[in-house]
Nucleic acid binder design. Structure first.
Lengths: 149, 149
DNA sequence: GGTGATACTGAGAATTAGTCGCAAAATAAA
DNA sequence: TTTATTTTGCGACTAATTCTCAGTATCACC
């Protein structure tokens, strides 16, 4: 059992919940890819490999993974929530291209200190944060064509 | 006619559109409050004061106001998009309390330079950005009670 | 290995923010 | 006023997410 599984199992046990097969499958699949994902993509991936885990179960598992600090709700794109794992990963910034929809990730580096400084002035305790920017990516800047529309 | 109206009217004219009464009402109401809002709240406010502007019209007007750089889609809370006006306002950071749902605004100060530096390394051109943090606000930190649940 | 209490699941119904189509109404120019 | 065009409100629609519920798995305890 790997680290994520341990963490998740402990978390569940503390809440009197169980690490069932569907939950294991979801967890495994979530940590298999290193990019953000939405429930639909996850559902499709799982459907290919394993028998079936219903969408409802996936939707129900996301908040658990979030509460266990394994993943976070990172951004919203095309009217869908997108998640990404936190565990074992640096936080990063999302640059979303308004033309082609590409999502570029960039390091956040000093952002965190800055945010904490700001929060301190409001006596706010930050647990999680998101930084997202929208604009135009290199490709779209270059050729001016909209690869999307 | 105030500045916002001028800007909006010019913007609309450039696109061959008109500053109609519903659009005026929406614009006015949007700039009346200095906090973020969602379509529902806007709809309710308008319904109290004026006869009626349909939800559809409000939904249709938001993208126009955004394109005119008068407002922006600032954050998502309780599964709803929230907007805020940009015109005449500094950009700011949103601190959303996970316990009571309060949204605190804070100055962003040096954030913008930092973001642009980062974007540059990816040759990305930023048009808009959002910074949001979640955590616990002073009040909830203090008394430990959930003023929300 | 049964048994009972409880948690979990899948399927599909329900909900809800947001969009769309359309016929009627407003607009603005001629 | 006429005409061409844009808008509007209404209600139907879409799609993501949540909920319900009846059946199933799990696990502690016998």
């Amino acid at each position: 059992m790997n680290q994520e599984q341990k963490i998740f199992k402990e978390f569940l046990q503390k809440k009197g919940l169980k690490l069932t097969k569907p939950r294991q499958i979801i967890l495994e699949e979530v940590f298999l890819t290193h990019k953000h994902f939405n429930v639909d993509q996850l559902y499709d991936q799982i459907k290919i490999k394993y028998s079936n885990v219903s969408r409802a179960t996936i939707y129900r598992t996301m908040p658990l993974l979030i509460e266990a600090s394994l993943i976070k709700n990172a951004l919203r794109c095309e009217a869908k929530d997108h998640y990404e794992h936190i565990y074992g990963h640096e936080r990063h910034l999302h640059l979303i291209c308004n033309k082609c929809g590409t999502i570029i990730e960039a390091e956040i580096s000093d952002m965190e200190q800055l945010l904490n400084q700001i929060a301190e002035t409001k006596k706010f305790h930050i647990e999680d944060y998101n930084v997202g920017a929208r604009g135009v990516c290199v490709n779209c800047l270059k050729d001016g064509t909209n690869s999307n529309e």
